[in-house]
């Protein structure tokens, strides 16, 4: 079945590349075309995934190539849903770009289609767990960009209420996704090892990140402090997030982590 991959992947790749390019323009007529192209790409990949499933006679969840297929599919679908819901164009472009990246890896390096996953990773939780983190980190990353923008606006003595309100919404959505990530991870761990929580260093850092954003959300609820406080806090929170994401592998506490995958 993978021999047909090139055709479907090519359709999705081309459709999405055009969609992303059209989304860069501000004209709304172009956005409608971009939306249609995105949907064509999604349908093409969905059709391929379903046929692959039927031909393999098992859910395509066992190899790295197969997981990438799902990343592409879900990122484009969720990106589209969030675009319809929130009209965050930049987000849809990001989701499509990530979907393109995963599809591109499969397209350029087909041999890793067949690299079998270790048994613990052969779980229905694997893909949702990774996808919600990709999305959550992206939303929080964009919120941080708004935090920096807000600080620059303040320097120029410009109004920042709108920037803060937008950042709040992004933090809420991003926080929602990383909560999903934590909970999916817990459910998966229970199934695989019989514990929902083992204080694995990555888990601990992910909890810390989650908690810092939780504090931000609570302190932001009645806004007793200046906008500057919230913007600076967002940047510091993102530094913890980055530590959780990249830094954990180098910590002495992480020597036996199940999450070390560099």
């Amino acid at each position: 079945m993978w021999i047909h991959f090139e055709l479907f992947a090519r359709i999705s790749l081309i459709a999405w590349i055009f969609a992303v390019s059209l989304f860069i323009f501000r004209k709304s007529a172009l956005h409608i075309i971009a939306e249609i192209l995105s949907l064509i790409g999604i349908v093409s990949l969905l059709y391929f995934t379903i046929s692959l499933w039927i031909s393999l006679d098992r859910p395509p969840l066992r190899t790295l190539g197969e997981t990438r297929l799902w990343y592409s599919l879900f990122l484009s679908v969720i990106g589209y849903a969030l675009y319809k819901r929130w009209k965050y164009r930049v987000f849809f472009v990001y989701a499509l770009a990530m979907a393109l990246l995963f599809l591109g890896i499969n397209y350029a390096k087909p041999d890793i289609h067949n690299k079998a996953l270790m048994p613990a990773l052969q779980s229905i939780w694997f893909i949702p767990h990774v996808i919600v983190y990709i999305l959550g980190y992206a939303f929080l990353g964009f919120a941080t960009v708004l935090g920096i923008t807000g600080l620059l606006h303040m320097k120029k003595k410009q109004e920042t209420s709108k920037t803060l309100a937008e950042a709040e919404n992004l933090v809420y959505i991003g926080y929602g996704f990383i909560t999903f990530g934590l909970l999916f991870g817990a459910l998966w761990a229970k199934e695989a090892w019989g514990h929902y929580w083992t204080w694995d260093p990555k888990e601990t850092w992910a909890l810390l990140t989650w908690g810092v954003y939780l504090v931000w959300i609570h302190m932001n609820y009645t806004k007793p402090y200046s906008h500057k406080f919230y913007f600076v806090f967002l940047i510091l929170a993102f530094i913890i997030l980055l530590l959780a994401w990249f830094g954990v592998n180098y910590l002495p506490a992480a020597q036996n982590s199940v999450h070390v995958y560099s």
């Binding site: 601990t204 850092w205 810390l208 908690g211 609570h218 910590l251 506490a253 020597q255």
Partner: peptide, 21 residues
């Protein structure tokens, strides 16, 4: 009070995050 309770819990989490348990 909620923020304080979260910060107390996070402080202990931070210890676990830095010191091998």
């Amino acid at each position: 009070a909620s923020v304080g309770a979260i910060i107390l819990f996070l402080t202990l989490t931070l210890i676990m995050a830095c010191v091998p348990q």
